[in-house]
Nucleic acid binder design. Sequence first.
RNA 1: GGAGUGGUAGCUCAAUUGGUUAGAGCAUCUCACUGUCACUGAGAAGGUUGCGGGUUCGAGUCCCGUCCAUUCCGCCA
Length: 444
Amino acid sequence: MKRLLVSELKDHIGEEVRVRGVVDTVRDQGKIIFLIVRDKSGKVQTLVWGGEDKTLLEKVKRITSESVVDITGKLKEAKQVEQGFEIEINEIKVDSLAQSPLPIVIEEEHHDNTTALDRRLDYRWIDLRSKKNSLMMSVATLMTAKLREYCLVNDLIEIQGPRIISAASEGGANVFEVKYFDKKAYLAQSPQFHKQMGIAAGLERVFNVGPVFRAEKSFTTRHLTEYTSFDVEIGYIDSYEDICEFEEGMLRYMLEAVKEKYGEEIKKIFDIEIKIPKDSFPRITVKDAKEKLAKAGIKSKDEGDFSPEEERKISEIVEKETGSEFLFMIDYPHKQRAFYHMKNPNNPELALGFDLFWKGIEITTGAQREHRLENIIENAKERDITEESLKDYFDYFRYGCPPHGGFAIGTERLLMKMLGYGSILETTYLPNTPNRLGKLINKN
RNA sequence: GGAGUGGUAGCUCAAUUGGUUAGAGCAUCUCACUGUCACUGAGAAGGUUGCGGGUUCGAGUCCCGUCCAUUCCGCCA
């Protein structure tokens, strides 16, 4: 018999059905046992009665919660059950008996002793069984699919830059070194240079989705040593404004789809309203932002950048003023940005780039890139990067390269803000951090 | 890397100024229960108090070291 999903059962009342799933709850009443069975689509009550033949009852008595079962039985109308129906078990096969107790308590509404995050992550496969986490995984899937779809609709070419590279792309200190036969190699911190190669290759508009690696000992709620970067690079732009507009469109497209499919569930489970941005996001210069922050009594440590406190506060201020959860921060000092950002010709002290803030944190850095060979070499020199060290990269600009710009989104961060999580570890399937490679390392 | 807070049962947490046998809820196990729905009731089991050292008649509690977690900062997406 073919397996039915719990969500399909309502059309089969009165029939013999087969469900497969996990035992959510066991309620043993002695001569009647209720098993609540869960699959990806929902939960259903099943039951077994004690009759003449006790073998089925005795078999069910031994089943622990979280065990995997294969049940066939009659789907009956049952007024006393909220759902209106239940399955009277004829046959039950235990595909996998779960050891008990579980090492962690799965996060559910009625559990007030949910296990601490670091331990839940050690048993992530059990942790992910919660309703909240399974919704998170579904939203993550749709989110990435829609970002990607937006790129396809707009005729971008997908590239897959290499993850093992011979030279660091963003400065040398924070790269992971790996052995490459008898040579040293590095894990890519960013597909930046390879995206730009795509522009020089005449692909005109490219995107790259995949893991990037940062050897930073960052102990925060928003850093990973390995994360998924959604990278876009677009040629023949007039300004970084074109990039901002593309990103606005992309995020709106994604948010609309997520809201349509999961908006109600997200509201119910996360108590988060997905807001679709109506107009273009506000642009605010670093200078203006600093003034607003000063007015709000926030001290600035660095005139060219924002502390986390400042990021939170400026988001709050701008949202209050404009109603927008998003804001583009522009006019950063060039010397505090990457060397490949283009300088503003009207004021070479400033970069033609931006950061995108969402609900208090930075989710994107973008810019118009410097595509003129002389200028980019000059920019590099200002940061003591020698021409020889990035010769292969500089060559991309030697044989004809269109003006271009792009941005990168940290997808785990995006999801974290979308669902209102307090930590990026929650929105990463199996997070790697300085002290965690899948599991905790160095733990006593 | 810096600063703060913390580490006690499978899980979440208590434990008075340093004082008798380290407690509770949930989970687990046993028994009872034919309509539960966070089942209920009765009972049981469960501990090298992160690890190492020190002070003391006596340490979960105080001191030193160390590891880990966590929050914030720095760095960033």
